[in-house]
């Protein structure tokens, strides 16, 4: 498998907070999911890989280029599509004008070629019909697709998507997943998300982060397998449970160390995720 993005020893401190702690990874073409609770360092890692902020220590390469040098950074940026966690817009711009502006930032100076590219990416995300609408009049899901279109300008080889499905309703989320799956054909996509569903449906690989470091790196099936024999059902919250939640029948589904004679059930991706985090998600929700 071709390695397109590789990093080793990436560390970054904000004051006394360790946002990234010796992160290493190797990405290949296709969609890789980045799971983790809030504050795990997902956004920081994506911003470092997108060359928005430099790491304190460590190095990485993107498609053979080293962003540690001015020249290498520019080469990386020419191959990069980035959808930030909260993409900003000029609200008075139309969808077309905004994507056109980003296309200028991406060095497309020839007007005709640039406008052709803007139309292509807006069609690709299904917004061809509303390209003349002002962004402030678009729904949240449509704005998110405008931001994705901007990221896709210039057919980047490395696409960095920071929680693109947050704030979307289930139908929009589904539509967005289809777009990401399409974008992942032939490109390296790193997708950060809270949703294990996104990972289950889209990703050939998944990284789980917590407290600034990578806790798991493997396939979704391998993450699920982490929970084999450690998921059970019962009427009450058991002491050995690292996390538990109520199912549709009102019973508790729990992961951790099952009590004697517990009714074990088939593990899912989120069970594996919770176990890798050692219940940290639960603690966060309770906080």
């Amino acid at each position: 498998m071709t390695i397109t993005v590789s990093a080793s020893g990436l560390s970054l401190h904000y004051g006394r907070t360790r946002a990234l702690d010796e992160v290493g990874l190797r990405l290949s073409p296709g969609v890789t999911g980045l799971l983790g609770p809030n504050g795990a360092g997902k956004t920081t890692l994506l911003r470092v890989l997108a060359t928005a902020v430099p790491a304190d220590r460590g190095a990485f390469t993107v498609l053979g280029h080293d962003p540690g040098t001015v020249r290498g950074r520019q080469e990386v940026r020419r191959r990069l599509g980035y959808l930030p966690q909260t993409p900003g817009f000029h609200p008075d711009f139309t969808a077309f004008a905004f994507v056109d502006y980003v296309a200028v930032l991406k060095e497309l100076t020839d007007r005709r070629a640039r406008h052709r590219e803007v139309r292509r990416v807006l069609e690709e995300v299904g917004l061809g019909d509303v390209r003349g609408r002002r962004i402030k009049k678009l729904s949240g899901g449509m704005r998110q697709r405008v931001a994705l279109a901007a990221a896709l300008v210039g057919d980047p080889g490395f696409l960095v998507l920071d929680e693109p499905t947050v704030g979307l309703d289930p139908e929009q989320r589904m539509r967005f997943r289809e777009l990401i799956a399409g974008a992942g054909e032939g490109r390296t996509v790193l997708l950060s998300t809270h949703q294990t569903e996104d990972v289950a449906m889209l990703c050939r690989r998944v990284l789980v982060m917590a407290a600034g470091s990578v806790r798991f790196d493997g396939t979704p099936a391998e993450l699920t397998a982490r929970a084999a024999g450690r998921v059970w059902r019962s009427d009450r919250r058991d002491a050995g449970a690292k996390a538990g939640w109520r199912t549709g029948t009102g019973e508790f589904r729990q992961v951790g160390d099952p009590p004697e004679g517990a009714e074990l059930v088939e593990p899912t991706l989120e069970d594996g995720y919770l176990l890798v985090l050692d219940g940290a998600v639960d603690a966060e929700v309770a906080a």
């Binding site: 900003g88 991406k106 060095e107």
Partner: peptide
């Protein structure tokens, strides 16, 4: 001040 700053800063335009 610039709502698109994060996108602009990672663009190849210096």
């Amino acid at each position: 001040m610039d709502p698109t700053y994060e996108i602009a800063v990672v663009a190849p335009l210096h």
